[in-house]
């Protein structure tokens, strides 16, 4: 068998089969995160703070120290860690439920503090691990186990646009939404995730990337259909874009 680490580097642990479901977008995002860490050469001083849910699996496929935080609190864990150990690179990785349901308060205050921390939010519009319940990013009319007639915006609100909420925060230095619906989109996502880490390596401030991904299992869809949904309905509402990029200042330390 080809030595994969010579191709992908040491950060990604390719000896393990992932426990992500077939077609899950987490596998792509996990790889992009691993590649960014590898390319920046910061593996030995990078710490993953992962959330509860499928996103919590992500660190198992990277040979870096990791902390599985309490549900939604990864950003606060990262703030405490970064204060005590500013020389290390700290990133949080979690899904939409962990990041913007139970953890929205922690996320917004961590972002507003503007400490050099990187957050990756993997948005598949559903609570995947617990079996497909409505999340704050569930689309209008989307049928889930807990919105059986479709999300009713009159009482359940509109899908939450998280990076848009951070736009006015001066401490946020890199802010983007990406998707994994096509090879082209994945290449763009890779660039944004790398910038989000670079932003921290340069010590500039908070960096946030939301990645729109499919969850065929939680949505009860075929893999192909779930990627089509990702390319159409999901990204029609969650529009991929770089909201803010102030990473051109400073050198990679």
């Amino acid at each position: 068998m080809e030595n994969l680490s010579s191709k992908y580097g040491k950060t990604l642990n390719l000896d393990k089969l992932t426990s992500y479901c077939p077609g899950c977008g987490h596998g792509i995002v996990t790889r992009l995160v691993g590649e960014a860490i590898e390319e920046l050469g910061v593996m030995e001083r990078t710490i993953a703070v992962v959330g509860i849910g499928c996103g919590g699996f992500s660190h198992h496929y990277m040979d870096i120290d990791a902390i599985e935080a309490t549900h939604g609190r990864s950003p606060s864990f990262a703030v405490g860690y970064k204060l005590a150990m500013p020389e290390n690179i700290v990133f949080t990785y979690a899904g939409d439920g962990d990041t913007c349901a139970i953890g929205l308060g922690d996320l917004m205050h961590a972002a507003n503090k503007g400490m050099p921390i990187t957050t990756i939010m993997v948005n598949n519009t559903v609570f995947g691990m617990t079996g497909g319940q409505m999340s704050p990013t569930t689309l209008e009319g989307q049928v889930t186990a807990t919105s059986v007639k479709g999300r009713d915006i009159s009482s359940q609100g509109y899908p939450l646009l998280v990076p848009e909420m951070m736009q006015s925060m001066a401490g946020v230095k890199y802010l983007a939404r990406e998707s994994v619906d096509s090879p082209k989109a994945i290449r763009k996502a890779k660039k944004s995730i790398r910038k989000a880490f670079e932003c921290q390596v340069k010590g500039l401030g908070y960096a946030f990337v939301e990645v729109i991904v499919p969850c065929p299992t939680g949505l009860k869809m075929r893999v192909k259909d779930s990627y089509e949904r990702c390319a159409n309905e999901m990204t029609d509402y969650f529009k991929p874009q770089v909201f803010k990029d102030e990473t051109e200042q400073g050198d990679v330390a």
Binding site: R73, S76, F77, A78, V79, G80, G105, D106, H109
Partner: peptide
């Protein structure tokens, strides 16, 4: 470091303790 709630306080404390 003043935090926004005691939930965040104890979480940041745990992060620092790591």
């Amino acid at each position: 470091m003043q935090m926004e709630s005691e939930l965040a306080v104890s979480s940041a404390l745990a992060g620092a303790a790591c």
